[in-house]
Amino acid sequence: MTTQLRSLSEEMCRTTILDCVNPVTRMGAAMILTFPLFITLDWVSALTVVALEIVIWLALCPRHMGSRLRTLGLRAIPFVVAAPLAGLSMALYGNPDGQIFFTWGLIVVSEQSLSYAAAVAARVIALGMACLVTLIGVDPTDMADGLAQVWHLPSHFVLGTLAAVRLVARLGDDWRTMQLARKARGLGDHGVLHRYATLAFALLVSAIRRGSTLATAMETRGFGRGRRTWARPSKVGVPDIICLGIAAGIVGFGLALALVTGHFRWIGDVL
């Protein structure tokens, strides 16, 4: 089933040296990789960062390159679909300058608006990719350990969220069964909206029931007493520094390339 396929591909992604890096460091690396995307608006820096991060990610585990590339491609579908849509509005309504190609009412497609569009589309892809290459294969439990022990976020919230994540998968099963039940009850021919209205309430009931059982179970196991110990110590070390260094290097190279080629554009110039 799909879950088996997913766990298989995650298995492949997990056998890399990235696993020596604490998940929170990987999240930090994602932040570094995406930071310049918020302050610049040109396509060169964004696409350079994307290309470099994909190449480095694949190089981490050359043996499974084919399957890893496929996993990455499948996960990237949402961004690849969203990117042109985000770019389109820029192309149509962006601040016009340079050669004008087309006008119709408020729509002005110009040389500048097209370059903005390319930059925005590249940014959407770059944002998504940065998160994918750093976070694919991270175990939620390890991430929670890192957030609570390394970043010192309140353990109450971190563990509560972690337990809830596990329940969400169960709710997916409930949702599936409830949809079949709607069909059995003679409601399957109705429109989607009508069906979802009754489904949403039933799902809420099921979420509350499961959630309150879980909360009671956690409470009886001493959760919420305040201080606690950690069975899995979450540590940071040399690999984490290297990881952040590589991320900074990628970003630096991308920005430098944009400056050298003259494509660099600071976001302040546009606003």
Partner: peptide
């Protein structure tokens, strides 16, 4: 099913 907290 609802009493288990963690995935491992």
């Amino acid at each position: 099913d609802s009493q288990i907290v963690l995935t491992r």
